[in-house]
Amino acid sequence: MTYDPGYNFAYLDESTKRMIRRAILKGVAIPGHQVPFGSREMPLPYGWGTGGIQVTASILGPDDTLKVIDQGADDTTNAVSIRAFFRRVAGVATTERTAEATVIQTRHRIPEHPLTEQQIIVYQVPMPEPLFRLEPRIAETKRMHALADYGLMHVRLYEDIARHGHIATSYNYPVMVNGRYLMAPSPIPAFDNPKMDQMPALQLFGAGREKRIYAVPPYTGVRSLDFDDHPFRPIRAPHACALCGSRESYLDEVITDDSGGKMFVCSDTSYCTERQTAREAAE
């Protein structure tokens, strides 16, 4: 496929991509460690995935197949726009099917379909610092990471239990990577945390406004923080998907009318559609 000749392949110039790849390599070498990088102005505002887009742009090759999801859905504005962007500036193939993609850029979800060694998942990260809100001094958070001084993170979980009786953090749930670095998994639901552990795919994280990149290499231990007597539990709405009937997938609550009507459906639209198609085929 061809791309818009007004731009370099995948929008970024080659030296920027090299700079970002160096940051990615360093991130892979030190799993969970936040690597600063020279984040560029992108043709969309901060908060729309500028970090993830720069990472994707730097790793994309002409033969890649790109999938972009936003809260699990392929058809929301953000996902559609980013997909269109890369079709235009990189001419790459795009897909909505998880298994077909080689690069998956995501905002706030990990697909239900297990990822493989052939795939890379790129997370859009609004705030890479897990100690943010607990320790306002950036220099101090860096020292805490350097010294693995993470008692404070448990203080937050302690406060959760003290206030709510259980760990109420339900997204962006802090994890320890490779037993060394405390990491923010981006605002994915805690339900998705176990998928990060020993994942065969490479996981890359880009924060455009905060100018940080970090990574979890394939088959790396990712453990959600918890207490012995309050173990980590991935939480899911106790329903079956109203469309495909799944009892395993993460569900979104959808309001259907003005009188309190609602239903629960898979957040991962690709997964849900495939299941519906398979069921129709079987009938």
Partner: peptide, 8 residues
């Protein structure tokens, strides 16, 4: 917690 206590 800083010295490793993990039992709430």
């Amino acid at each position: 917690m800083a010295v490793g206590a993990r039992h709430y």
